[in-house]
Design a binder for these strands. Structure first.
Length: 549
DNA sequence: AACAACTGCAACCGCGACAGA
DNA sequence: TTCTGTCGCGGTTGCAGTTGT
């Protein structure tokens, strides 16, 4: 495709350049095929010298002018990730770690943007760190985001939203759009509302219409009335990719509200995996009213409704795991509303602490013990049955809402998060159900909830997800089915790649609890971590515009 | 102690998108 | 309009270190 890609003529050795072997001739100065694989010191020196002389950019000229047998892209990456003089080396500091968490809560998988906020760190470095962290936390059954991060991001989002409204009404400032597209798109709430009205029968299965006596409209109004209304929302993970095509935008309009809810999306995905690609759309195409409503809605640019709304070319189940980062969840579930029965932050707290219940009940029917395939098949059957009844399911809507309302009695002070996490997270139905399940994981944690083990996380799987919750009520941990890694695993129906060992799991959990970043996160709640005020022209200059520490 | 399995890390790859010529 | 250069990002790969058997 790109010229850079085309430049590659040699198969990659797949080996990074960190271990430079000076004894190896780096094919420096050769006119032969471009070299790949590890960079040698000689090559590094040439590249450094070239950049020193000519500056950054025009990387393809490096080969011509310096004789370096590397494609421009390779040179750029080498420089950016290794040779850049302002790079910080070494492990992330606790403050950096916290900042990454904050940024990820805000930006999703926008590694480059995150890197711009972390001077001296590269996007790749941050990405690797994050993926490692996610894997670690998921193994330990811990939430991805500490609650303070949730709240902070939410507050920032609210503030930016207000500023946005003041300055431009419903028109989003283009500069803010990529960052502030966290809120729930109005279209999704409207769709949801429509679906509530149109598909009331479906509430028998997923009673989202009346949740513990609270009309769904009340909950929905949180989105409709909240400042997030009319705003783009969901953190994007790679929104830029998806938003770049208008095609995606319009395809997305055909997609359901469930995509507004990370879990809903995931549940949909479960079914879709079996039903197939067309089911994703067909499930909802019968709802022209909602679709039309969506079209007529003031769907904001960059809306995660679009982002999460899976275009036909990229069905929900096939979508790359996209972290609906914090605002997604917060915006969806924690939006303040006058009609909300819960204070805003309290709702957040509940969300953090509350395991899903409603959907769990329905899931109790799942032949879950038989494994992934059965579960997926069941989901598929459920969906088909519902569809035959003309029902638009919004399973996660109901479950989330119920959880939100139902668990109000279990609200804990925010400061008790750490203790609470220790109580719950590794032991069953953790808050990670909310905060980690939607996190993209490129790693191999697919197997973790399903392999046998002694930790409750695994016990859930063995018992079909039935785990005793702290109040003694047996609930099903929907995490198993809503986790993206489950979806991945289910999607492939492949064998577990790396059976996780019990002890390693325990080790991870303990390590995470005792010495890992969460504790640091909690300790550093008040440590500042204010968003960097530095403005980086990341788009125009990329990394070279990054300030030096 | 030896081997295997697992994990983290750094780098590369492929692709899509944008901007400018 | 097309092509080229560049950037961003998710995914993948292979090495090295660690842990388990």
């Amino acid at each position: 495709m790109s010229s850079e890609s085309d430049e590659r003529t040699k198969p990659s050795s797949g080996v990074d350049s960190s271990s430079v072997d000076d004894s190896i001739e780096g094919n420096v100065g050769g006119n032969g095929p471009l070299k790949k694989g590890p960079w040698t010191s000689a090559e590094d020196a040439i590249l450094v010298e070239y950049v020193t002389k000519h500056g950054e950019g025009n990387w393809n000229a490096v080969q011509k002018h310096s004789g370096l047998a590397r494609c421009g892209k390779s040179c750029r990456l080498r420089w950016a990730n290794h040779l850049r003089p302002d790079l910080k080396k070494g492990a992330f500091t606790p403050e950096e770690e916290r900042r990454i968490i904050e940024l990820h809560a805000k930006l999703g998988n926008k590694w480059a943007r995150m890197a711009a906020e972390l001077p001296g760190r590269t996007d790749n470095e941050i990405k690797n760190y994050w993926n490692t962290r996610i894997k670690r936390r998921q193994r330990a059954g811990l939430p991805i985001y500490p609650p303070d991060i949730c709240l902070q991001s939410l507050n920032e989002n609210l503030q930016s939203d207000n500023m946005n409204n003041l300055s431009s009404g419903n028109v989003h400032h283009p500069d803010l759009m990529p960052v502030n597209n966290f809120e729930i798109p109005a279209v999704e709430f409207k769709n949801l509302e429509l679906n509530q009205q149109l598909y009331t029968p479906g509430l028998m299965d997923y009673p989202a219409g009346n949740l513990l006596g609270v009309p769904a409209s009340s909950l929905l109004s949180q989105g409709l009335n909240s400042p997030y209304h009319n705003k783009s929302l969901l953190p994007t993970v790679h929104s830029s990719k998806r938003l770049r095509g208008s095609e995606s935008f319009f395809h997305a309009l055909n997609t359901p509200i469930c995509n507004a809810f990370p879990g809903g999306n995931q549940y949909q995905s479960d079914s879709s995996m079996q039903i197939g690609k067309t089911s994703v759309l067909s499930s909802y195409d019968h709802n022209p009213a909602a679709t039309e409503h969506a079209r007529s809605s003031s769907l904001p640019n960059g809306s995660h409704a679009v982002i999460n709304g899976n275009p036909s070319s990229e069905p929900a189940w096939a979508m790359k795991l996209e972290l609906p980062s914090l605002q997604t969840q917060m915006g969806t579930w924690g939006s303040p509303s006058p009609s909300s029965p819960l204070p805003f932050f309290e709702s957040v707290d509940i969300l953090i602490q509350t395991p899903p219940n409603e959907h769990m009940q329905s899931c109790n029917l799942l032949p879950q013990n038989s494994g992934l395939l059965d579960a997926v098949l069941y989901e598929s059957e459920t969906m088909k049955t519902s569809k035959s009844n003309g029902v638009q399911q919004t399973p996660h809507v109901s479950s989330v809402a119920v959880n939100t309302l139902d668990a109000s009695a279990r609200v804990l002070p925010e400061t008790e998060w750490g203790a609470y996490e220790e109580q719950l997270s590794p032991l069953g139905n953790s808050s990670s159900s909310v905060f980690s399940e939607s996190t993209p994981v490129s790693g191999n944690s697919l197997d973790e909830p399903f392999s046998s083990g002694t930790l409750p996380v695994k016990e859930e799987a063995r018992n079909g997800g039935l785990v005793p919750y702290d109040n003694g009520v047996e609930t099903r941990n929907q995490t198993i089915f809503s986790r993206p890694d489950f979806l991945l695993a289910s999607n492939c129906f492949g064998p577990v790649k790396h059976p996780t060992k019990e002890h390693s799991l325990l080790k991870d959990a303990i390590g995470t609890l005792l010495g890992d970043d969460l504790n640091r996160d909690c300790k550093n709640v008040d440590a500042g971590a204010t968003p960097s005020a530095q403005a980086h022209d990341h788009d125009s200059g990329g990394w070279n515009a990054m300030p030096t520490v």
